[in-house]
Design a protein around this nucleic acid. Structure first.
Lengths: 132, 132
DNA sequence: TCGCGTGTATTAATTGGTTAATACACAATG
DNA sequence: CATTGTGTATTAACCAATTAATACACGCGA
């Protein structure tokens, strides 16, 4: 479990995003146990409350659940899990479309640039990825 | 001159973004005079220093220039003006690709979703746009 | 029953960015 | 030459979000 922190976004947001990505790519399975607050905090060298905040948000969103005082687990609700990926995509698309729309970029131009960039990142992965 | 402020981003950032969009869509022309710090501040009901900060960033970026103590003007450097649009697009694309790549969305799926959303916003504009 | 590792709650501290207040310098204009 | 409107610089205040410190509650197992 390794999160590449940046300095821009709040740590707890980045932790949530990390779990969402893990869920969206099926790296975390339904019912799977995740590290305890203190354990993850220790591992990532951050404050336990920061993890707690991340976990709390995830629990309120229905991504994880907690039974008694046991480490939380990934939800077993398949629909919920599936929607995580959907929502991540929708968020990204909405933000992106708003940006390019405000400067009136035609759809075809967008797709063309997108394709280029897509091939770039694919190439990078074929070699030895190391990004933020 | 009207900026739709949101509560998320700093005001001066939104002011800069507004000018960049205006430049990218050719609403502001090379050499064109822009409102003085105090004037724009008054118009937008914000502090003159907030405008100053926005203008300062734009001047450092080469988007505007200031002669003596006259109101600043849009740069006449056509290459610079053209690159504004390019950079806005590149920023949007980079951020977008990073997002969808982290959850491994295939290119074709991205384009499909994008197309849908694009048609949505186009339709909205045909009617009576009113967004933040 | 005691201790340990869970999750949880409350409150405080920090801190950085943002905005505001104020003053200064300059040039044009009447 | 004084006033007014520019841009500029410096400093302070503010404020909200984030993080940290601390204590509490619960259940399990030695």
């Amino acid at each position: 479990m390794k999160v590449n922190f940046n300095n821009r976004d709040p740590v707890y947001v980045q932790v949530v995003r990390y779990f969402k990505q893990q869920i969206a790519t099926n790296m975390l399975e339904p019912g799977q146990e995740i590290p305890s607050r203190r354990e993850l905090a220790s591992e990532l060298k951050i404050n336990p409350n920061t993890v707690q905040r991340a976990y709390k948000e995830m629990e309120e969103a229905g991504l994880i659940y907690t039974e008694r005082n046991l480490p939380s687990k990934i939800t077993k609700d398949e629909k919920m899990l599936h929607s995580v990926r959907e929502e991540l995509i929708i968020e990204a698309v909405d933000s992106f479309v708003a940006s390019v729309h405000s400067i009136q970029v035609p759809f075809e131009e967008v797709v063309a640039i997108l394709k280029e960039k897509y091939e770039e990142v694919s190439d990078e992965n074929k070699r030895g990825e190391s990004n933020d």
